[in-house]
Amino acid sequence: MPKRLQFPLFLLRKLLKVAFTVWVVTTLIFFLIRLMPSNPIEQYIQNLVIQYGMSYEEATSRAASLFSLDLSQSMFAQYLEYLKDAVRLDFGTSFLSPGVQVSEIIAARLPWTLFTVGTGLILSFIVGTALGAIAAYRRESWYEPIISGLSSFLSAIPDFLIAIFLILFFGVFTWWGRGSIVPIFQLRGNYGAGVNIGWNWPFIKSVLDHSFVPILTYFFSQIGIWVLLMKGSTTGCLNADYAVIARARGLRPRKILTSYIGRNAMLPIATEFAMRLGFIIGGSLIIEQLFVYQGVGLELLKATTNRDYPLMQGIFLIMTIAIVLSNLFAEILYSLLDPRIRVKGGSKHA
């Protein structure tokens, strides 16, 4: 009975935390831009004055419209204005392509990143947990050290180095005198030149061709972690008392593996998966740069090198919000999967 009361409370506390985190990050960005000794707005105004010979007032109003800030207001009023925009996910317009909303740019880039990183994550999760479970069940087999060894190797190496190895393996090295596996031009960009964008087969094929090695990179850079996590989790559950008793109860081995060991072993893994969903949005900047893959990460990079501040803050905020929300999702998921947590979570601060 106390359980029913506690769940909304638990949810409320988590939501407050989400709001707080987002607020911290937005504020951080605001003050990074406004309060730094050589803050970018001031720099921009100076630039306009020096380079284009504008008057200071003219330059200021130009900057204000670009940053969607009223620079004549007090700092606090500006901050409130900024927060209001941020809540509506209105980040203003881009510096480099004036008149284009930041949110539009993000919306255009997001599907590409979601597709590659998401596919890589899901594939690595499925294969990794399966391999991890096998490694745990067959602890004495000859192939267990191979699975575990390769996994810890892959989990240690930075993802962009894996990308370089894969690019060399697929696109550069020639095998048995037959040329590379994938033509090198397929390792750059989202799709080939000369295809019509839309739901037609040449375009889809081109997209798949171009995304193959990037997805493989995301796959290899995450599979090691899934294998190790799943192996550890399953090994713990294999020797758990309830698994031993289930065997003493004469349950069928398959039943024990799925309902007793598998279900418990998946608890922390599913939570981790939910948490990682948030990283799909950001993807990996370096990997998108290596494959010249036009996604959110590469856009953030371009925005940074071009000092396109509204775009930078927009992308960064979206990335953070995604992670915060996926953390929330993970916590709710865990509380739903594990009946023990709801009560614990509710009474933690009681």
Binding site: D241, A248, L267, D338
Partner: peptide, 16 residues
């Protein structure tokens, strides 16, 4: 034959 092991406090599957 029923064999009941020592740790009866955790003999049940916690998620069922």
């Amino acid at each position: 034959i029923v064999m009941m092991f020592q740790a009866s406090q955790s003999s049940f599957n916690p998620v069922a």
